[in-house]
Amino acid sequence: MMTNDLHTTATDTGVDEDAVLRLSETTEVSPQQAREILKRHRGNFERAKKEAEQFRAES
């Protein structure tokens, strides 16, 4: 049974598109960058958020 949380809308890329948008909006990285970061962290939002924040700080 699936629940309505951030991990229920995974696409064929294996990444939750709701999480992509949330990461993109909260860290100001592009949706494509957010998708790639989430892939690297296997959907772990907190780890992905830390990396995205570091990425933005460096740019």
Rank of each mutant, 00 (worst) to 15 (best):
E28T: 02
E25H: 14
N44S: 09
R56D: 02
T26C: 09
R35E: 02
T3N: 14
T26L: 15
T8R: 09
D5I: 12
T8W: 07
D18E: 12
T3E: 15
T9I: 09
E25L: 13
A48Y: 02
T13W: 07
D16Q: 04
T3K: 11
R40S: 04
D16I: 01
A34M: 11
T27F: 10
K39D: 10
R40P: 03
A52K: 02
E58V: 06
R35F: 04
V15F: 02
G43H: 10
N4F: 14
T3I: 05
R35P: 00
L21Y: 14
R56A: 06
Q32D: 04
T13E: 10
R35V: 01
G43W: 07
F45M: 07
E25N: 14
T27P: 12
L21N: 15
S59H: 14
V20G: 03
A57I: 05
D5P: 01
N44R: 10
K49S: 04
T3G: 15
L21I: 03
K50I: 02
R42W: 04
K50V: 01
M2E: 13
H7T: 13
T11A: 03
T13V: 08
Q54R: 11
R22F: 15
V20N: 02
R35Q: 12
F55M: 08
E36G: 05
P31A: 09
Q32E: 03
D16F: 07
A57K: 12
D12N: 05
T13C: 10
E46I: 02
D18I: 01
L38A: 00
L21F: 14
D16M: 05
M2C: 11
R47H: 08
M2W: 14
V29W: 01
E58M: 08
V29T: 01
R42K: 11
K50W: 00
F45Q: 05
Q33I: 06
A10P: 05
S24T: 10
L23W: 03
T26S: 15
L21E: 15
R56V: 13
D5C: 14
I37P: 03
N44Y: 08
A57C: 05
A10D: 06
M1F: 13
K49L: 00
Q32K: 06
